[in-house]
């Protein structure tokens, strides 16, 4: 564990809590893509099946349980409790266009063909693109609530911090995982546009609106 990874994990945790609190406090999931949240739940479920097989540390296990529980809680809020506020008209990204390529890619490029390893690989690829339905929704409506933009920023910053962690681990432990690194870089690039607008607008107190 190093400071970059810890900060990354904290950003990840903050993102999830911000999203849950936003929905809970406003009693509404307007502007939130349920499809991205389905993909994230799938990411955590397929990556953290190792909870049953591999013990890394108490920190590791507790975080995994929190990510799993919070992702299903988010789905419950969107699709059950506050279903009436779910903006399904704007959440039209076809997730099979992400799921099918991720399945195929994880069968082609993987460290090893064990079920747990394949699920891990799939989860890494899927995580890289899981935010696309949400970004698509923001681009369709042309705006995001400030709190939603904070959520997106924290979620994007988490993987960016992990990249710094991978560079650090490469030099200090000679540890490198090509699959995670390449997917993590792609994941971070997908947020680049958003980061730019967040920094130039939201941090200066303006609303997050896409240029017309």
């Amino acid at each position: 564990m190093n400071i970059f990874r810890l900060l990354g994990d904290i950003c990840h945790l903050v993102a999830i809590i911000v999203l849950l609190l936003k929905i809970w406090k406003t009693r509404s999931c307007a502007g939130i893509s349920g499809k991205s949240q389905i993909l994230f739940a799938l990411v955590y479920t397929t990556r953290y099946v190792d909870l049953f097989f591999t013990y890394v540390s108490l920190y590791n296990s507790v975080m995994k349980v929190i990510f799993l529980a919070s992702s299903y809680a988010t789905l419950y809020l969107i699709y059950v409790k506050f279903k009436a506020t779910y903006d399904f008209n704007h959440d039209t990204f076809r997730i099979e266009f992400l799921l099918i390529p991720c399945v195929i890619l994880s069968l082609l490029i993987t460290h090893d063909y064990s079920p747990v390893e394949l699920l891990w690989t799939f989860s890494i690829y899927l995580e890289a693109v899981a935010i696309l339905p949400q970004l698509f929704m923001v681009s369709k409506t042309g705006e995001a609530e400030t709190i939603t933009s904070h959520y997106l920023f924290a979620l994007g910053a988490y993987r960016a911090l992990y990249i710094v962690n991978w560079i650090y681990r490469y030099y200090t432990e000679s540890f490198i995982d090509g699959i995670a690194v390449v997917a993590g870089i792609i994941q971070t690039i997908l947020y680049a546009d958003f980061f730019y607008l967040y920094i130039t607008k939201v941090l200066k107190g303006k609303d997050f609106k896409l240029p017309a």
Binding site: T54, V56, N60, M63, K64, H111, D112, E117
Partner: peptide, 10 residues
């Protein structure tokens, strides 16, 4: 090449 600590990240 799967050792148990390889996936020690979240």
């Amino acid at each position: 090449a799967s050792n148990p600590s390889r996936h020690d990240e979240l």
